Amino acid sequence: MTSRPVPVPVLVYDGDCAFCTTSVNFLTRWVRPRCTVTPWQFADLDALGITQERAEHEVLWVSPLGTVYGGAQAVAKLLLSAGGGWAWLGGLLTLPPVRWIAHGGYRLIAANRTRLPGGSPACALPADRRPGAKA
């Protein structure tokens, strides 16, 4: 799967997950990243070079050159794009051993998002079994 360059970075997240949507809304309001934000359910995944399986698994950052970063590194790129103190934090998340800890923390949160505030039962279902999924 090859991606086409995008004019600005794109953050792709799970729009069916209330926890993910709440998190992205918080980040866009308070952090103000310089990117386009879209749920994977409405994104042209082929054009972005992303599989549906990967989009269901983690938040993704697609750079203007088409490089795809996932999970904690996608969050790091988002923070870097915001500039200021956020960029400092994003840069820290890219450095070992902080990067390794961030990856583990992201996986722990992702695995338990149905139990977190804002999480919903839809978060736990595979995409084809979620409410409103196309048959």
Results as ranks from 00 to 15, higher is better:
Met1Glu: 03
Met1Gln: 10
Ser3Val: 00
Ser3Cys: 00
Arg4Met: 08
Arg4His: 13
Pro5Trp: 12
Val8Arg: 14
Val8Trp: 08
Tyr13Arg: 07
Asp14Ile: 09
Asp14Tyr: 07
Gly15Val: 02
Ala18Phe: 10
Phe19Glu: 02
Phe19Gly: 00
Phe19Asn: 02
Thr21Ser: 11
Thr22Ala: 15
Ser23Pro: 00
Val24Pro: 02
Asn25Glu: 13
Phe26Thr: 14
Phe26Asn: 00
Thr28Asn: 09
Arg29Gln: 12
Arg29Asp: 11
Arg29Trp: 07
Val31Pro: 00
Arg32Ser: 05
Arg34Leu: 11
Arg34Tyr: 01
Cys35Asn: 10
Cys35Tyr: 10
Thr36Lys: 15
Trp40His: 15
Gln41Thr: 04
Phe42Gln: 15
Ala43Arg: 01
Asp46Ser: 14
Leu48Val: 00
Gly49Met: 03
Gly49Asp: 06
Gln52Ser: 09
Gln52Val: 08
Gln52Ala: 13
Glu53Tyr: 01
Glu53Gly: 10
Arg54Lys: 09
Arg54Ser: 08
Glu56His: 06
Glu56Ile: 00
His57Met: 13
Trp61Leu: 03
Trp61Asn: 01
Val62Arg: 11
Ser63Tyr: 03
Gly66Glu: 02
Tyr69Lys: 11
Gly70Pro: 08
Gly70Ala: 13
Ala72Val: 05
Gln73Asp: 08
Ala74Ile: 06
Val75Pro: 01
Val75Ala: 13
Leu78Phe: 00
Leu79Lys: 04
Leu79Glu: 05
Leu79Thr: 06
Leu80Thr: 03
Gly83Ser: 08
Trp86Gln: 11
Leu89Val: 15
Gly90Ala: 04
Gly91Arg: 10
Leu93Ser: 06
Leu93Glu: 02
Leu93Pro: 02
Leu95Gln: 13
Val98Arg: 01
Val98Tyr: 05
Trp100Glu: 13
Ala102Leu: 10
His103Thr: 15
His103Ile: 11
Gly105Asn: 10
Tyr106Arg: 04
Arg107Lys: 14
Ala111Ile: 01
Asn112His: 13
Asn112Leu: 03
Thr114Gly: 15
Thr114Glu: 14
Arg115Phe: 14
Arg115Ser: 11
Leu116Cys: 05
Pro117Cys: 12
Gly118Pro: 06
Gly119Asn: 10
Cys123His: 07
Leu125Phe: 09
Ala127His: 05
Ala127Glu: 04
Asp128Glu: 10
Asp128Gly: 02
Arg129Tyr: 05
Arg129Met: 14
Ala133Pro: 07
Lys134Phe: 12
Lys134Met: 12
